[in-house]
Simulated assay, not measured.
Amino acid sequence: MAGNCIRAWRSAGVPKEVLGVGGCRTFSAGSGKAKKGSKGGAAADAPKESTLSKEVKSTTVVGANILKDGADPKILPDSEYPEWLSHLLDKRPALSELRRKDLETLPYEDLKRFVKLDNRARIKENNSIKAKN
Score class of each variant (00 low, 15 high):
R99W: 04
K101A: 14
D118Y: 11
R120T: 07
R120I: 08
P82W: 03
V115I: 15
L88H: 00
W84K: 04
K101H: 04
L89H: 10
L117Q: 12
L85T: 01
K112R: 13
K124D: 10
L106Y: 03
R113I: 02
R113L: 14
K112E: 14
T105G: 15
D118S: 15
P107W: 01
L95V: 00
D102C: 05
R120W: 06
Y81D: 05
W84R: 03
K116S: 12
D90H: 07
R113Q: 11
K101I: 06
L88C: 05
E97K: 11
K112G: 05
L111P: 05
K91P: 07
F114H: 14
R113C: 04
Y81Q: 08
L98T: 01
Y108N: 09
E97H: 02
N126P: 03
L85C: 08
Y81R: 07
K116E: 11
D90L: 07
S96M: 05
K91F: 01
R100S: 14
K112F: 08
E104L: 11
L88K: 06
L89P: 00
L95Y: 05
K91T: 09
L95E: 03
S96L: 09
F114V: 04
N126Q: 15
E80K: 13
W84P: 00
L89M: 06
E97V: 10
R100Q: 14
R99C: 04
K112P: 00
L117A: 03
R92A: 04
E109N: 08
L95Q: 05
K101E: 13
D102V: 06
D118H: 14
V115L: 13
K91R: 14
R92Q: 09
S86L: 07
A121G: 00
D90N: 09
P93Q: 02
S96Q: 10
P107R: 04
S96F: 05
P82N: 06
L98M: 02
E83Q: 10
D110G: 07
Y81S: 03
L111V: 01
L103M: 13
E83S: 11
